[in-house]
Simulated scan of single mutants.
Amino acid sequence: MSNRKAPTGNTVIFLAVLVAGVVLVCVAHTPVASIPAFAAGLSTLYSAFKQNSNDDT
């Protein structure tokens, strides 16, 4: 039996946003100059989700 805890919702969402960013950069052949814009957008989406989930509790 494992003593590991199940991943929380925040961890799952964080990983989903991270994977979405990697897919956009790798598959969509995003230019290097636009990577900071993607990072800012993805971090904004994650912070909006996190703020929304904190309001529910």
Rank of each mutant, 00 (worst) to 15 (best):
V23A: 15
A20R: 05
T8L: 12
V25H: 02
A40K: 04
I13P: 01
A37R: 06
K5F: 00
A6K: 10
S43M: 08
S43E: 01
L15R: 13
G9D: 14
A39R: 06
G41V: 01
V12T: 12
N10Y: 12
L42N: 02
V17I: 14
Y46Q: 11
L45H: 01
V23Y: 11
H29R: 13
D55H: 11
M1Q: 00
S34Q: 07
P7I: 03
L24P: 01
A39W: 06
N10P: 04
R4D: 07
T57M: 08
A16D: 15
G41M: 03
A16H: 15
P7N: 04
H29V: 02
L15Q: 15
L15K: 14
V32H: 07
V23E: 08
F14G: 11
L18V: 09
A33T: 12
H29K: 04
T30G: 00
P36I: 03
V12I: 15
F38L: 10
F14S: 14
F38D: 02
N3L: 05
V22K: 03
D56Y: 07
Y46T: 05
P7D: 05
A48I: 13
F14E: 15
D55S: 13
D56W: 02
P36K: 05
V27W: 11
L24Y: 13
S47W: 12
V32M: 14
D56L: 12
R4V: 09
L24I: 15
V12Q: 08
T57V: 11
T11N: 09
R4A: 14
N54V: 08
L15F: 13
N52M: 10
A48D: 11
D55W: 13
N3H: 02
V27G: 09
V32G: 01
C26A: 15
V22Q: 10
V19D: 06
